[in-house]
Design a protein around this nucleic acid. Sequence first.
DNA 1: GTCTATAACCGGATAGAC
DNA 2: GTCTATCCGGTTATAGAC
Lengths: 208, 208
Amino acid sequence: MNNMAKTENTELKIVEAATSVFVHKGFDGARMQEIADKAEINKAMVHYYFRTKQKLFERVFENVFEVVAERISSSLETSKSIDELLENITGTYFSVLAEKPYIPDFVIHELNRNPELIVHIIKTRGINKAKLSELIITEIQSRSLKPFDPLQIIVNVLALTIFPFAASSIIKGFIFEGDTEKYDKFVNERRQHIIDFVKSAIFKDQKT
Amino acid sequence: MNNMAKTENTELKIVEAATSVFVHKGFDGARMQEIADKAEINKAMVHYYFRTKQKLFERVFENVFEVVAERISSSLETSKSIDELLENITGTYFSVLAEKPYIPDFVIHELNRNPELIVHIIKTRGINKAKLSELIITEIQSRSLKPFDPLQIIVNVLALTIFPFAASSIIKGFIFEGDTEKYDKFVNERRQHIIDFVKSAIFKDQKT
DNA sequence: GTCTATAACCGGATAGAC
DNA sequence: GTCTATCCGGTTATAGAC
């Protein structure tokens, strides 16, 4: 009992440490020693619990991915209109990414370099894009919205929301010349801007 | 003379090989041996020409960055209206990125992990966002467009254009379930879609 | 489960002959 | 300029005592 609690506690500490290292340095840049140090534990212990760097990484990646996927899909389930959908998606992403802005670059980078990961993950959790485009198509017809391709719209919303976090260093550096204050203001205003911008694009009747 | 031609030729071969390796594996994942192999040259030669991996990387990164920056800024210079601007930016990006889709992830990832690079690059080539937002502001007033923040609009266009390339593996995997044909069709239609979408968002008069 | 020590290997970099 | 051989530090992973 005592042992088990200890075990799970140690394992958790390792995963947490590993997450913060992998997420900031990537798989190739991460060092098992740094993970051990951050977990305040011996390096051998990390191998005792997870055997290889690769296995530890997979555990971390799935965790990180799950955090986002979980919150996104639950917010999709409950959306009954495009307006609600927009509010929910942007809201969810902003609440997750404002806290963990490094997630997009991490996920994108590791997935690009390791496409097998995708196959593995898709099997466990497929995003229900069918349901999503159905909702959009229905709305396009019933509310006579602009006849854009639903998939393009979905990607647009993802792009508008995620890109600024993925490319934060570029936007901060090149567009705001390193001015953190202006950048923060920009991010704060952006959630509402995206909603307004997308609505303005797809609704025929103007709401300014 | 003969030596010099050979030198420049060898150097070029190294840079080309290094580019393809760095761009796909990132700095941490890249191996000098693989670069040497690809350049069909000895590993010691790579060090002879560039001394360190870091120096070779910087040369490659600046080259890659330059390709994009060059074409973007020249297309910005010549744009006299928002319509032209949209056509030029999306057109330029698509022509560059359709050919080199790995650039966004590479640039974003390396810049996020190595912010000092940004400072270095900004000094040499600043993006003239001032001129850009001026044009947008003028257009907003004279053609009575929706009063969106010009900087948000700029980021929107970049996001809509670049994100699908950066996250290509995700979009291909999750939204198109690995169907390359559908994905290619999606990308081909996307350039025009972005133009239509953005115009629809910022123009008050509808052009469907 | 936890630690120390070390194996085994890899990768960047250099020495030195040609 | 080009090659072979090699050094050397660092990194993953394991052996083995406690």
